[in-house]
Design a binder for these strands. Structure first.
Lengths: 342, 342
DNA sequence: ATGAAAGCGCTAACAC
DNA sequence: GTGTTAGCGCTTTCAT
């Protein structure tokens, strides 16, 4: 299982160059007090032997480590795979941001129920810090991890009594502008689709409520619909709601995928989008351009998200105190919910 | 930069438990010759201190390593990000497959021009093997790496004189069935869109040619169009081709994204899809369902791809000889190229 | 059943 | 300038 392929190491180079291991070490490190000629000879030799330093040993000795673990929690019950486009894109952005800064990225999928196996990554020295992609229902567990002083940043919404550092889109604002957009285009009964047990969704629903208040519309609990992120399940919930009564003319969803499901459910129920019901997505993934109708959606800055998460974690690692950070979002208006009512 | 946070280690547990480090080591390893009572006491202590073994040190000592590097080459000139949905999905699938088997996944983005910085990951002991996501234009470099005896598998097409182990979809078959599908639905002038400098695309074009031969249609070089994968550039090329003459009634593309670009370019040129021109995508990513028209496309098995890549690499690591592997593909017929001509 | 000691591949005092 | 030596945190003979 574990290849015992014998690699060339410092001792070999030392022998071949007729110097000591320390000299090789210093030469390779570019230590200026080593004779330029020796240094050159050693480097040459190392290169010709395809020698690369054993980072494991180096880290052990130096007590250092340049590896950051990126953790994608998954739901063990459904064995749900990492497939949401936004999270996948975020993982890509994190890879970019970390690579740019010279860090290695350890990607692990971890059972959401036992997030402290994520902690083991740091406590076992595999990684020096944790980026957790999504807080899901695990606000409390995350707080616990933070209380254990793990260097940790989480993509998600900022909640009261939060001990960990989160970076996320401005969810309240997102829910607000999405709803406001629909109201301004003349819609009056705006359905909110999403599972408010998730902090991000909870905050977006706050924004939805706020927009309704602004417009002087009474909040109506029958317009709150619990819809999970997973596509099939989402479609089912939406179909059920359509069957229960088409008493709304606008829908605010929590992802572009969910918006697509909503459009399909509405059409299956004989509604036209946006003529009868307008639909707003969330995330503004590339897919939003390609659907029919193209999606009006709340744009989240994925690339910036990657950068900010990494910067926050590195600051934490430097011992700085890092407050949660909220990134700007904005509306992108397309066909599924035009600016003027159809 | 490198957190010197002092972690609890074996010595601490040993001291607290009043035993030696070796006993702790054995106890934690579940060595049966350790007194059950001692073992329990030590484990208890370890757990209560949140102790996790330092895997770096353990690996150094054991000469082992459970880390696989997944490398996504990128083009330094354009600093193109990991964004193609198929590759992102493949990375997700790899994460799943590796996690399931107890391996860690190191994700790195590497400049495609200097792929041997990928080699350094193995030679420096960070990882024991390499999964390279896409062969791009680097067939020769990959051969070189393989010649260096690096444990390495590559997602991509199988080419003549290939020294490395590749796992990929059946590209010839993919090009063949896509073209055949169009021909059978009555199309006669089928454009092939893709950059045949890439092995996978080269093979798909072979399939395209073969389908034309089968149908007794002479290959027409003017129906080969070099289209890059990147969306904006792809759109430009397709627009140019449409302007140069709409002398085709079907298009075979090399990704679903490219198919979407083709649809948009055709529409901009006043064509109806599929009435005037039918378009076939490639990959069958979720997006293919959501576009308008929904895409007829060649399905590639992403999840299986992740599994097969990992299995192949592990076999390689076990010292087995692993032949390149080709995974089945199949047509998925949707609206952009219906079975019967429109 | 447990401890002492050596060593995995590397770096950094400290000598000379 | 370069060599000697002592560990980084762990596992594993070899003793006892």
């Amino acid at each position: 299982m574990n290849e015992p392929r014998k690699r060339v190491q410092m001792a070999d180079i030392a022998r071949l160059a007729g110097v000591s291991v320390s000299t090789v070490s210093r030469a390779l490190a570019g230590n200026p007090q080593i004779n330029a000629e020796t240094r050159e000879r050693v480097s040459q030799l190392a290169r010709s032997l395809n020698y690369t330093i054993n980072v494991g040993a180096q880290n052990l000795r130096l007590q250092k480590n340049q590896t950051i673990a990126v953790v994608v929690p998954y739901d063990a019950r459904v064995r749900q795979h990492i497939s949401d486009p936004f999270f996948l894109a975020l993982v890509g952005a994190l890879a970019d941001a970390l690579t740019d800064r010279g860090y290695d990225m350890l990607l692990s999928r971890v059972d959401a129920e036992s997030l402290d196996s994520a902690a083991a990554l740091v406590e076992g020295g595999k990684a020096i810090g944790l980026v957790i992609v999504g807080q899901w229902r695990h606000h409390d567990q995350l707080n616990e991890l933070a209380a254990r002083k793990l260097p940790l940043v989480v993509w998600g919404g900022q909640m009261p009594q939060q001990l960990y550092c989160s970076v996320g889109g401005d969810n309240v604002m997102g829910g607000l502008i999405a709803t406001r957009h629909l109201l301004q285009s003349g819609r009056r009964r705006v359905l909110f689709a999403g599972d408010a047990q998730l902090p991000e969704v909870y905050l977006r629903r706050e924004g939805w409520r706020q927009a309704l208040r602004e417009a002087g519309i009474a909040a109506d609990e029958s317009l709150e619909l619990v819809v999970p992120f997973e596509a099939i399940a989402a479609r089912t919930r939406l179909d059920e709601r359509c069957a229960a009564g088409l008493d709304f003319d606008g829908v605010v969803t929590c992802s572009d995928l969910m918006a697509v499901q909503a459009v399909q459910a509405l059409r299956a129920a004989g509604q036209r989008v946006p003529a009868d019901v307008a639909v707003v997505g969330y995330d503004d993934m590339p897919i939003a351009t390609y659907t029919e109708p193209a999606l009006t959606t709340v744009h989240q800055p994925v690339l910036m998200a990657g950068e900010e998460l990494v910067e926050a974690l590195l600051a934490l690692l430097r011992g700085e105190t890092v407050p949660p950070r909220t990134l700007p979002v904005h509306m992108v208006t397309r066909a599924s919910a035009p600016a003027a009512a159809a």
